[in-house]
Design a protein around this nucleic acid. Structure first.
Lengths: 208, 208
DNA sequence: ACGAATACCTAGCGATTGCTCGGCTTTCGT
DNA sequence: ACGAAAGCCGAGCAATCGCTAGGTATTCGT
């Protein structure tokens, strides 16, 4: 009755330093999976990067599958934390560009999602469900955003919100792929902003 | 001096049926790599699909690397064969949508390029050079196309051809990824056409 | 300070990987 | 029809894979 989160009687919680340790592992896993993907990455590569044994890794995350999912979930939380879809339409799109900019700054974030989103195209991939859900959720919310934009008179006559949402996510994803292929040689957030603004009647608000 | 393509004296050309055999192998390799990628696919999986041994495979293509590159090159030729970049701007964009439609019909073509284009983001990947070159070439040509479109008055004031080319390729790639994630649930060529037309002043010509 | 749970390691298992080697069979130019 | 090259295979090698078993060391509530 003393520890705040003891579900059963016999168990004990993780140690103090363990939280940080797990964080280090997830960071290392991100570095590995981001470059060579899930199938190309090995537990050994991750373990070496943290200075730990493979068995040590598996003590914290029971399997390679769970390690991957945990890595993705963690990165997803961080990157989309401050995305408020209930804000007015133009504001949401502005936030989108900002998230893209933050991802460029965060090392490996873009690599991770580009590589794994493609790998998880296979239904048997451990992250397949993760990306399907994420994709559908993002589309739903963005469609609502474009609905709102239509009401505010930001869209041309007869524009379809769902189609615009699809196009926006597509440009985002596609730009990331090209950005990696071309050696990060262009301004990714700028290109995304241009891609979005090209379909609107008015320019997006500036980053105040 | 009898065989048409004997470079050196001692060598002999491939047998008659070999051409077809190699074709079958490339088809099988496409099916495998398209689903699980290069790193996830094994020579054994490809060999089984053709009803051959791994050693037999390696007799035709010396290594797994070469098998992959050959598979990509073959598919690239087929899919982009009838893309005439010297045609007038609007016509080229129309052809682009047509290629997308043909890719949807060709089994595994989209899967192959989505999965491998992301995998080849790693500079050490055997297909890295292939995709970098392909990406740069496509961008160059598309930029010229949008230049032409600007001259013809199809673009809004102050539109940047290079930026438009980047956006077009991005939407194409991105739509393919989502198309796979969402279980092929929307009309890919239509979405691409919409994405392209959204940035033009006039609609594209119909498929006559 | 004691005891129990957690953290972490070494060793190793079984499976799979890409690829090589030596030899047999088929093809085909002469 | 003969011989050389091409096609193809079975066996096997060295490396790597994810993961388990069983142990020791560390942590921390009491």
């Amino acid at each position: 009755m003393s520890t705040p989160a003891d579900t059963t009687g016999g168990r004990r919680g993780p140690y103090r330093k363990t939280v940080r340790r797990r964080q280090e592992i997830l960071d290392a896993a991100l570095e590995v999976f981001a470059v060579v993907g899930y199938r190309g990455g090995s537990l050994r590569a991750v373990a070496d990067r943290v200075g730990m044994s493979e068995a040590g890794l598996l003590h914290h995350f029971g399997s390679k599958d769970r390690l991957l999912v945990e890595t993705l979930r963690r990165r997803d939380e961080v990157t989309e934390a401050d995305l408020d879809f209930s804000a007015p339409g133009p504001e949401v799109l502005r936030q989108l560009v900002e998230v893209a900019a933050r991802n460029v700054r965060a090392q490996g974030a873009i690599e991770l999602f580009v590589v794994l989103s493609a790998e998880a195209t296979d239904p048997d991939h451990p992250a397949a469900a993760f990306f399907r859900d994420r994709c559908e959720r993002l589309l739903d919310r963005l469609t609502a955003v474009y609905d709102d934009l239509g009401d505010r008179g930001w869209l041309p006559e007869g524009a379809d919100p769902a189609s615009l949402a699809l196009g926006t996510v597509a440009t985002w994803d596609g730009l990331q792929v090209q950005w990696l292929h071309l050696g990060r040689a262009f301004d990714l957030p700028d290109a995304l902003r241009a891609g979005i603004e090209g379909r609107l009647l008015r320019p997006l608000p500036g980053p105040d």
